[in-house]
Amino acid sequence: MKDSEVAPVILEARGITKSFGGHEALRGVDLAAHRGDVVAVIGPSGSGKSTFLRCLNFLEKPSGGQVILDGEIFAAADFSGRSHQHRGRLIKLRRRVGMVFQSFNLWPHRTALGNVMEGLTQVLNMPASEAKERAQELLNKVGLASHAGHYPAQLSGGQQQRVAIARTLATEPEVLLFDEPTSALDPELVGEVLSVIQALAREGRTMLVVTHEIGFARDVATKVVFMADGAVQERGSPEDVLRQSQSPTLRAFLSRFRQER
């Protein structure tokens, strides 16, 4: 992974700001992910990690700044009004930037297979038979081939999250965003989801992972970003950020985890 510096930048955020009413949740966040990067985003609760991630695929419309995907600029200003002019571009951006949610958000009226097929048939316009085959492959990849016919309510949290990952992979996104993918899980189910994410990292996929799993950040990430108060406070290699940093806020944040251990 040491050669990630020379790989081209695939996703870049420039000066992303976001305010909710008077409250400034993001105060100008810059971040660049190179192809193959696994960026772990850590930080205390309320620091704006989720908001930042959601701004990257415009689930949240940023108040200002730009998202640049593979050279194409998506400016906050383009999407601020009610204009439909950029809607098509937005759909394309979202297809190329997948997102996995903390609470899975599987569609309860579709089976595991149906959840994965949705993007194939409706976004990629794949014929149903082909989509079914592909969806089955994706479920196989997350170790749930035998659960294709199960409804979300019939799956454990860990299984639901793995289906959600397969659903996200279906549209073949170039960048994957994970928002605390294991925080809603029982401790004994965390491992199965983390190992799927780890396998994706090994494939060389570009990922941004908001996480409270410091162990994951240390072992899997190529870069760690520490956010506090709506801005990036520290960034660098896991070693630099997690071990060498002298920032008092970061040290205080990390010490909470040390104690828990």
Binding site: Q154, S183, L185, P187, G191, L194, E213, I214, D219, E260
Partner: peptide, 22 residues
């Protein structure tokens, strides 16, 4: 018929847990 019986339920959010990736 439309609400499939849960076989094993998803659980609510737990506080931040530290887990080392194996």
């Amino acid at each position: 018929a439309l609400k499939p019986a849960p076989l094993a339920g998803a659980k609510g959010k737990r506080p931040n847990q530290l887990q080392v990736v194996s």
